[in-house]
Amino acid sequence: MTTLIVGASGATGKLLVEQLLKAGQKVKVIVRPTSNFPDAWNNHDRITVIPSNVTEMSVGEIARHLAGCQAIASCLGHNLTLKGIFGKPRKLVTDTVRLLCKAALESTPERPIKFVLMNTAGNSSVNESVSVKEKMAVALIRLLLPPHTDNEKAADYLWNSIGQQNPLMEWVVVRPDTLTNEREVTEYAVQASPTRSAIFNPGKTSRINVGHFMAMLITDEDLWEQWKGQMPVIYNIPKTASPIKIHRQEVGLF
């Protein structure tokens, strides 16, 4: 299986590439020519590096790169700088998701292409209810942090424009909570909806666990069938947590 990845040079994207390679997969990565990515990628027989700014590519160009791919993954996000947060492009993730989806649909695959989008636990699914207090906080965040709105609209595009019954594309939106850096994959739980407030009582999710779960979605058909068309939330399981409290029927445990 071959996966086309955008945002591959980011902190989580690099880990996703690593996890897919460990699973014996091939990857194509679209990275800006000025991006900082491992030199080894240029000489790896299962990595195709496409040096380009994805926002400047045409639908047809991306469709050509999608030839032979069975999955798309996006770990794209805004840089945590003043320019990255408040500068252009304001709709980096949304516009890229739309572009990738149009290219995938244009390529008319023999079977549905998988699309895995990294998002955030602060973005509520369309079928989730939140408290008035949290709604007010999110409204303020939308005003102060434009990237949050971008994440919301990117997920909304998959919900509303691609839908859950599209014969050419299936999707999963992965929602980690507060991101942390760890060296190794640890135990984590996957749930259909948040079990805590991402604003007032956030949990933690290591980037390597996010990369592992995204790779598992791409390579494990049973896991894909479980979560396709949904927005699962992923949390690290604290080392001190009692396993009795983890309900395997409700939580994907890895």
Rank of each mutant, 00 (worst) to 15 (best):
K22G: 04
R142S: 10
C69H: 00
Q165H: 15
D150N: 08
L145W: 13
S206L: 04
Y188I: 01
A104L: 00
H247R: 15
G84W: 12
V126P: 12
L158C: 07
N160D: 14
G203K: 02
G211Y: 01
V54F: 05
V17D: 01
E187R: 12
K28A: 05
M214Y: 02
S197R: 05
G13I: 06
T34A: 15
I234Q: 00
T120P: 04
P109A: 11
P38V: 06
R248D: 11
R142L: 12
P232G: 07
M216G: 03
F37S: 05
P51A: 00
T186G: 08
I141L: 14
N209G: 05
R90W: 06
S58C: 06
I85M: 09
V138W: 04
M216K: 13
F86Q: 11
V210S: 06
Q19R: 12
T205A: 07
E221S: 15
K133W: 11
E152F: 11
L99F: 06
V173N: 02
M57D: 02
S131T: 14
P147W: 04
K14I: 09
Y235H: 10
P146L: 06
L253H: 14
P232A: 04
D220K: 10
P109Q: 10
I208N: 00
S107Y: 05
I237S: 03
K102L: 07
D45K: 10
S35V: 10
V17S: 07
V116T: 08
T2W: 09
V210H: 00
I208K: 01
I47E: 04
I234P: 00
V29G: 03
P38D: 09
D95P: 05
T240K: 15
K153I: 13
E184G: 07
V130C: 09
T186M: 06
L80Q: 14
G211P: 03
A241W: 09
R98G: 02
N201D: 15
A241I: 07
G24F: 09
H247W: 11
N236M: 07
L145P: 05
C101M: 03
I5V: 12
P38F: 08
V6Q: 01
G84F: 10
T120L: 03
T3N: 03
K135F: 10
L100R: 03
L99A: 05
T240P: 03
L168V: 06
K228I: 01
Y157G: 01
N160W: 09
A8G: 12
D177S: 11
A155W: 00
D177F: 01
L179V: 10
I85L: 11
A215V: 07
P112R: 09
C101E: 00
H212M: 09
N53M: 14
